[in-house]
Write a protein that binds this DNA or RNA. Structure first.
Lengths: 219, 219
DNA sequence: ACAAGTCGGTTGTATTTACAACAGAAAGGA
DNA sequence: TCCTTTCTGTTGTAAATACAACCGACTTGT
């Protein structure tokens, strides 16, 4: 577990906490580290959760499949990102989405009660972590609003442009790499893959952008 | 300001705190109470925010208008609800949406720094309020995910059904009242009003539901 | 190297939606 | 009360999307 302390140090949750202190907090917070093989479910729709999760290694998708096999991708989780935090609250109902490992992944589980209940002992940084948690959830909240903004666009083209330009803004470069292949991007934006593929090519022909696989250049 | 203490007592933010203690905390937290006339902007897109807001009186819409006048409604705020919390974090950028008063409204402003920075003085319940804030943001987060679920549906009918049945689940009754008129509901679900109106009538003719104005009965 | 599977692009058709325009009912103001 | 405005439903047409089917390029595993 200690091997991932440098990873944790760079996360929003432990921002401002030194590596030594993180090591102490791991036991103070009762952290557990679980490993998931590619394709395995980290969390399943309908489950109850009382932990906040941090991805230490690998990558994940938060997604949902309906009875007819239609998939909807809510988001992508990269190394160091927090997830599950919205469902860790005691009165929160069950999970609405699955979380699935895209590759072999390691995940930290922190019992939410032990985070928000400040312990009186050695954890000097406990208060800081609670604040960090607040900021992290705020940020997640904003990114959900951002996604609602993509999704509220009426046409596939508008959805693509608003998504891609937002990614470019975040990565601060017109050259962007997205964590989705075509089918996944379509599931993320809730559009038809073939129509989206078609639209992307039209936009390329019109000189709006260039792409190759999951790398795009906005013009 | 004191007149709204009973309202605050019933909010998520002050859950578990007695009225007397709320009175003390109002000054401890440096609360401000602002009044807005019907139609006025409470917050504007592009502004920066360092407060968490609680609606004491009236009702609000969180919405966004683009250059062509197309409106997108993110959500409705009722009495006692918290808003703005996602943008109060120091590193959060500017607001992505407007907040507008649907009727004459009163809004509490709480400086977020004074909430998350526990004061050493009299506020016995400060820690509780921080936890409440965490749960409130979690809940907001879940409702955003819920909205993304409506929005990910491909057809107007599916959007309507998923939204209305979710409201029925929340209100725990097949008779529901929604805080939107037709145009607002269309802006909330990001569909065309006339097409939606058409679809609603088809669904009524098929016996799926009944409605009159903003009151619906699911069958 | 081969076979099987995945991925991205293309096309045609049926379905669905957006848009515009209009009309009756209801609500609000003078 | 009358007039104006808002709200809701209706219709027709143009545009966009979903769906299915197919192909070639590329990957993966044996």
């Amino acid at each position: 577990m200690k091997e991932f302390v440098p990873v944790l140090k760079r996360t929003k949750l432990f921002s401002g906490v030194g590596e030594d202190d993180i090591g102490v907090m791991l036991s103070c917070l009762g952290a557990r580290l679980l490993f998931f093989k590619k394709g395995e479910y980290v969390l399943r729709q309908g489950e109850h959760l009382s932990d906040i999760l941090v991805l230490a290694e690998g990558s994940l998708h938060i997604q949902k499949d309906d009875y007819w096999g239609n998939r909807s991708i809510l988001g992508h989780i990269g190394i160091g990102e927090i997830f599950g935090e919205a469902y860790a609250a005691p009165e929160s109902g069950m999970l609405l989405n699955d979380v699935i490992a895209l590759e072999n992944s390691s995940v930290f589980f922190f019992d939410v009660k032990r985070i928000i209940t400040t312990c009186s002992s050695a954890c000097r940084f406990h208060t800081l972590v609670v604040q960090n948690l607040f900021f992290a959830i705020s940020e997640k909240n904003r990114s959900l609003v951002q996604k609602l903004d993509y999704m509220s666009r009426r046409t596939t083209r508008e959805k693509l442009l608003s998504y891609l330009s937002e990614v470019a803004k975040k990565q601060n470069s017109p050259y962007i790499t997205i964590p989705f292949n075509r089918q996944q991007l379509a599931d993320y934006l809730s559009v038809d893959r073939s129509a989206m593929s078609n639209e992307l090519c039209k936009m390329r022909d019109e000189g709006l952008l260039e792409f190759e696989k999951n790398r795009f250049k906005l013009l």
